[in-house]
Design a binder for these strands. Structure first.
Lengths: 464, 464
DNA sequence: ATGTCGGCGCCCCGCCGACAA
DNA sequence: TTGTCGGCGGGGCGCCGACAT
């Protein structure tokens, strides 16, 4: 398939209408990547100021400055009621982001608690879409953009042989509501076509030196602003607003309350624990990678003592994926059910040996120091992980411990159900070619950017 | 003159070199507009958090939210030592902005005080440049860009008739250091040319709906961040960094200390006082507009009580220029030396009449209620405005009043020397044409944008 | 099945001159 | 003097087919 693309006149929507027009949720999620799942409005969520700072630091390509003041009154996590969520896309870069309004709470509404739990069970609907990393020919002005045959058959409308000129028009709407028309041609002189509403999105490769300076606010002021805004909202139980950029940094700093709670109360982590974690693959799929917990420690012992934000240092089984983060949070990982003691990874045995715990060569089947404990934990895991881990159970837990960032960090180990992750990002090339006829002023569309074509289905299949 | 323009290969400067390369100061100032003059490093300056907030609100096209908390410990102005100033230009929009690092101080270094005073006397060097609002033909891809003959003779190198093909090449460097080559042709079949280093800049018309959301930080958090960062720096006497965007908002919120002091101590304002103030004209020139003070009151009586940031409500003589702000600060205006009582403007007489001060029709020459006082003030003005208004005088004033935002607001009136203003801005059209061969991805180059051509002279004529 | 490239038609960028304000 | 536009030449966008993997 090849296509010529021209922007159909943007229909002269009056500005008002365009601004109120909501972004298509399915397309937004498709562009955000397979692992992103926003908590629903009205549910409880946990806000991590640390993670928020991290996102800003990443998007400004600047480390958090050390002379940002400490906010002793601001805890490392705030339990909030999610008051509002709106989806957005940067008008220049097409990067998707979400705006969330949070309100710190002290008492937990049952409904909000329930909503938080339900959101975990409701999987993201699998919309029919196709995602392709652009090739040189795709981005070149010389050739066209080729869609793999399977994708065309899956996504595009069924053939209609009534019309005679082979090439016919496909219409697609992008994140901003602009209409695009494409000519669809089948390579083998046989053509297929049908008019239907499609959606198209662009997932750009991460810019290398991201907007170095916003030219609006200094990085310091931003970080202070994050903390001060959260602290102010916390003390007044008033609302505050944040932006979540799923693709600029792997910092999911607003986490469904239930997910957090389940992880913290049902999983006890310890050194050497094996786990798996979901990652995004090249073509917007997901797969899990395995690793081992090597250390449990504060990411920032000075400002954020006893924070559970990425307090687990890990080592991944596949060293090839060197871009993976070496620190994760407990709610991002999932226990590996196959008994770990059967085959601890080589590097870990080596470390144990260095530490004098394992001396000499030991058979994989004979590691006495862990087996009993492991078995017990595994049993416990099977119990707590039974379907329908009771909501009332958490609530009673919650009532017994006023704040749940307890000191149980270094004690036990136990995996949790939920899986989450933020995609690793590819590097960039530099080119400024049009793609699919998109206007030239959209920068950074290169051969590592991705185009997403989406079948538009019923909108309300994705509850927000 | 017409020209074809192609970007000379950007010379493959390695990234490191490009980032450290400083922006040309003359070009930066030419693009910033005729009224911008940054205080020099090492001098004392006054920082107005209110004005800073205002700039952010303007650049985000969003009013300051009312639930931004009050910072009772943060005064409406901070006296700071200017530690660093760097000039920048937005890589996408070419908008110039400056980054300043400020450090609140309690004791005033004599040198810094002197530097602040000296900067007032040192006028911005008048560099040879030409500025033109783009016409439809200029931006069209069909025609070329025409430079007025006078400008060409003033800016371009002298003729050299040695070469034979009429059209020859001009090289110019833009704000980012990119080289551009232009073909220079004289209309009347006679051509002029010479190779020489020129500078070219683009001053875009203000975007109408400016970056609605930064997608990084919420507007609330930004405003809080501004206040919290300033408050933190003030209490610790530590440095903080701000961005000043001279063209996005008319908020000069970092003012040379001497300018501020002179205005506050030498000028006593009152209702009805006549003044003049500098404004930017269409073609980057400046002219003064006259007006009358109609009210003296806090801009924000709740959060910023007794602040001198735009506490003067004014009425302009020329109602045509409706875009002018109706609130100014005392250091922005200059007294009108011609005695005001000879001819108070009509609207003001009407107001006085309404208030029962003027009853019936009164001759312009017979307004007894002010004349004596005016004369006195005028005398005083002549005195205090003598050249060399002593620096030691301010210092003693400073020592006598620990903070100088005194309560003398509503008392007297007296004008001040210094003049300042921020340019009014034109509105925009929507078009996406290339200008002078600049790359297409630079947006918003339209017929109201301006192109600036500059003769590169000695760099260090402008002390920063 | 899909990425790349030579051939080449046509549109539009951009140069020239004419004309008007 | 300077903004606009018709004429028109050439370069590049973009369609087709060939070929390789």
């Amino acid at each position: 398939m090849k296509d010529a693309a021209n922007a159909v006149a943007t229909e002269n929507l009056n500005l008002c209408e365009r601004q109120t027009r909501e972004i298509n949720q399915e397309l937004w999620y498709a562009c955000a990547g397979p692992l992103v799942w926003l908590p629903p409005v009205g549910s409880l969520a946990v806000y991590f100021p640390q993670g928020h700072s991290e996102q800003v630091a990443t998007s400004m390509a600047k480390d958090i400055d050390t002379h940002v003041p400490n906010y002793p009154n601001l805890p490392s996590k705030l339990i909030c009621l999610l008051r509002n969520v709106t989806l957005h896309a940067d008008s220049d870069t097409d990067e998707v982001y979400a705006q969330m309004t949070l309100q710190p709470v002290n008492t937990y509404d049952k409904e909000a608690l329930l909503a938080s739990d339900l959101s975990l069970k409701k999987a993201r609907p699998q919309t029919d879409f196709f995602c392709k990393t652009l090739t040189a020919s795709d981005t070149s002005t010389h050739g066209g953009f080729s869609v793999p045959r399977r994708a065309a058959e899956k996504i595009f409308p069924p053939l209609d042989f009534s019309m005679q000129p082979p090439a016919q028009e496909l219409l697609a709407r992008d994140l901003h509501g602009n209409l695009w028309s494409f000519r669809h041609i089948y390579r083998g002189k046989i053509f297929e076509d049908e008019k239907q509403q499609l959606l198209v999105g662009i997932q750009r490769a991460k810019r290398q030196p991201n907007n170095l300076s916003s030219s609006v606010l200094s990085s310091d002021s931003m970080h202070i602003g994050i903390l001060a805004a959260a602290a102010h909202a916390a003390t007044n139980s008033s609302r505050f607003t944040i932006f979540y950029n799923p693709r600029t940094s792997p910092s999911e700093f607003v986490v469904p309350f239930a997910k957090c709670q389940k992880a913290i109360y049902s999983m006890r982590v310890s050194l050497g624990m094996r786990f798996r974690m979901m990652f995004e693959t090249e073509e917007s799929g997901s797969r899990s990678c395995m690793g081992t917990i090597t250390e449990i420690s504060d990411l920032d012992p000075v400002r954020w003592k006893n924070s559970q934000w990425r307090n687990l240092k890990v080592r991944w089984d596949e060293p090839a994926a060197g871009e993976r983060r070496n620190r994760v949070s407990i709610w991002e990982i999932e226990a590996i059910t196959t008994p770990f003691f059967i085959c601890p990874p080589p590097f870990f045995r080596k470390r144990l040996r260095q530490q004098g715990i394992l001396d000499g060569e030991t058979s994989d089947m004979a590691i006495p120091w862990l087996s009993e404990q492991i078995c017990f934990r595994d049993t416990q895991y099977q119990t707590t992980m039974m379907p329908g881990f009771s909501l009332a159970q958490w609530m009673s837990m919650q009532q017994n411990s006023s704040t749940f960032n307890s000191a149980m960090q270094t004690e036990g180990l136990q995996p949790v159900i939920q899986k989450i992750g933020s995609g690793e990002q590819a590097q960039i090339l530099q080119q400024n070619k049009g793609v699919l006829g998109l206007p030239q002023q959209t920068p950074q569309v290169d051969q590592l950017s991705k185009v997403i074509l989406l079948n538009q289905t019923v909108l309300d299949t994705i509850p927000l």
